[in-house]
């Protein structure tokens, strides 16, 4: 029912988008209107493009083995449900790129350090790499990290929160996260101060300029 609801909304959105495009073109011209609704191609050029295989090779910051751990953590934090999860939209690849370009040595080291600790604890406890541990084992280990317990310290927890913040940011600013998992309105048209929550049924994924 939710899916049907979303689909109806999407079709409604597409219809209103076409109608809106027509009205907008009349005001600003069709080239400008297309740019407004579709974004500017030039500024897309350098955006990180999700890849299906980024865990199979070294990233800019992380070694291949770290990329795999990162991918599995992404899947544990935000799994595939009715919509793709964080691993499916290559949040791990995004984080590698984002941490490399937009953060300093402190945050980079915090994430590197927690990945290494997770791997160490996994080998101690399960006798195998985190990637080889089964789903339940991975989850148990991460839940203990968040408490923290089972060999993880408060500092480990703090380091993990930096990573978790990046996973959530990466997922909900991805196309799937922002516009499928959440409700996305590029051009709302106007502001309504009061609508029934159930008419949207989820949070808005579209925000102001700064995410």
């Amino acid at each position: 029912m939710n899916d049907q609801h979303d689909k109806n909304n999407l079709e409604l959105d597409n219809r209103s988008r076409r109608r809106f495009f027509g009205r907008l073109s009349a005001v600003v011209g069709s080239v400008a209107a297309a740019q407004l609704l579709g974004g500017n191609a030039i500024s897309n050029a350098l955006a990180y493009t999700p890849r299906p295989d980024s865990a199979n090779s070294d990233g800019k910051l992380f070694r291949q083995q770290e990329m795999q751990i990162l991918r599995d953590i992404c899947a544990q934090v935000i799994p595939q449900t009715a919509t793709p999860g964080a691993a499916e939209v290559d949040t791990h690849g995004f984080i590698d790129n984002q941490l490399f370009h937009c953060y300093g040595a402190t945050e980079q080291q915090q994430v590197k350090s927690i990945l290494s600790k997770i791997e160490r604890i996994s080998r101690q406890r399960y006798g195998q790499a985190f990637n080889d541990a089964d789903q339940a084992q991975q989850l148990t280990l991460l839940e203990e990290l968040e408490k923290p317990a089972g060999g993880f310290s408060q500092q480990d927890r703090a380091n993990f929160k930096v990573l978790k913040g990046q996973i959530v940011f990466g997922y909900y600013t991805s196309e799937v996260g922002a516009s499928e998992e959440l409700a996305y309105l590029a051009i709302p048209g106007d502001f309504k101060g009061s609508i029934p929550y159930k008419s949207v049924g989820k949070a808005w994924g579209s925000m102001r300029s700064y995410y």
Binding site: G39, N40, S43, N44, Y48, H101, C102, T173, S209, Y211
Partner: peptide, 23 residues
């Protein structure tokens, strides 16, 4: 006006660093 609003209408997933600025 309009022509030089180069970032207008670009959703976060098409922004270079999703609104963040290179360090």
């Amino acid at each position: 006006h309009r022509k030089d609003y180069t970032s207008e209408g670009v959703p976060p997933w098409h922004q270079t660093y999703r609104s963040r600025v290179e360090n």
